[in-house]
Design a binder for these strands. Structure first.
Length: 313
DNA sequence: TCTAGTCTTGTGCCGTCGGT
DNA sequence: ACCGACGGCACAAGACTAGA
């Protein structure tokens, strides 16, 4: 049972507006001034205080000269409610602009391209009070769609668009796929052909995603059936394995550029076009009323779409 | 003692809510 | 959808107090 259930039930009968009247009268120590501030007449304020008196064994305010004086009971009541009331006032004053989590779902390799720029931009806006939370994209496509519809996430970056009338999916950039191996590979120098790949072992990214599987099939067609020596859902682990073995892998160009020096990698030019993939930004159309999300969407458009900026330096 | 300022009380109107 | 009950508000008038 909810611990405040009984208290909430009795509160239903209590007019919480009486507390705002109480606070105004307490602050100004004047019924007429409080009425002015609250946009009421002084009789209405006086009557509100009368109603409040029915709930407490104390008159709360006593006429003192031309004004009124708060009783000690009113003093302690004020101490008890001022914090809660200012919390409520903050919520309404901010109209939802208080610090909130802006949740982004994406695969790690897209996150490393997009999120650093998003973070640095949003954090440079002092008026925007939000914190970025990144979560990994689940493999289940329906779960991804529902996450947006049910506001479990604010924005999704993925290699596939979402087809739903309530969701906007924008193409933000295309990225090339490149063949990669260790810098000191004993056989492969600077290029890779179907013939040279026959003698090599390959690393593959193990994800049950339609687009990724399509890409793997395309590589098979272009370069022949490969021998897979290692599989992982993590591109970073795959790159680190390439560093210590003589294996070959296929990665997004931005990822190669970012980690080539860290993992001692080199790019192999292919005599066939390995193609590219698209990156989409998806969000709920209704959620765009949110200033933080709108700022994020516009920043992504500005940086990756409008300027057609390269995703790697 | 009068006046001005403030609070309280009485009354009627109007909007909302709950029951039918 | 209608109707009665209820609550909140404004207005008017009275009560109270300080200061001139």
């Amino acid at each position: 049972m909810f611990e405040h259930q009984d208290s909430l039930k009795s509160l239903r009968k209590f007019d919480l507006n009486l507390l705002t009247v109480f606070e105004a009268v307490y602050y100004y120590k004047s019924v007429s001034k409080a009425a002015d501030i609250l946009g009421m007449t002084s009789p209405a304020v006086s009557q509100s205080i009368q109603r409040l008196r029915q709930y407490f064994p104390d008159p709360l305010f006593i006429r003192y000269g031309k004004g009124i004086s708060a009783t000690v009971f009113a003093d302690s009541m004020h101490e008890n409610i001022k914090g809660s009331l200012s919390g409520i006032i903050d919520i309404f004053a901010d109209k939802g602009d208080s610090i909130r989590n802006l949740v982004i779902w994406s695969d790690p390799h897209l996150a490393q391209v997009l999120i650093p720029d998003i973070c640095s931009h949003l954090m440079s806006l002092p008026k925007l009070k939000c914190r970025i939370v990144h979560n990994l994209l689940p493999e289940d496509a329906v779960g991804v769609e529902h996450a947006l519809l049910y506001h479990k996430t604010d924005i999704i970056f993925d290699i596939a668009p979402i087809f739903n009338s309530a969701i906007e999916s924008e193409l933000i950039f295309r990225e090339k796929i490149v063949a990669v191996c260790g810098k000191d590979h004993p056989r492969l120098k600077d290029s890779l052909s179907a013939n040279s790949l026959k003698d090599e072992r390959c690393i593959t990214i193990m994800k049950d995603r339609k687009k990724i599987n399509e890409f793997k099939s395309k590589i098979d067609v272009l370069l022949g059936k490969r021998v897979i020596s290692f599989a992982s859902p993590s591109s970073l682990i795959a790159l680190s394995v390439i560093e210590k073995t003589n294996d070959v892998g296929f990665f997004p160009e931005s990822m190669y550029e970012k980690f080539k020096n860290i993992y001692n990698l080199k790019r192999l030019e292919c005599d066939v076009d390995l193609g590219s993939y698209e990156v989409y930004m998806s969000y709920s159309k209704k959620a765009l009323q949110d200033k933080a999300l709108l700022e994020l969407v516009e920043r992504v458009r500005e940086t990756f779409v409008m300027n057609n900026k390269s995703v790697h330096p």
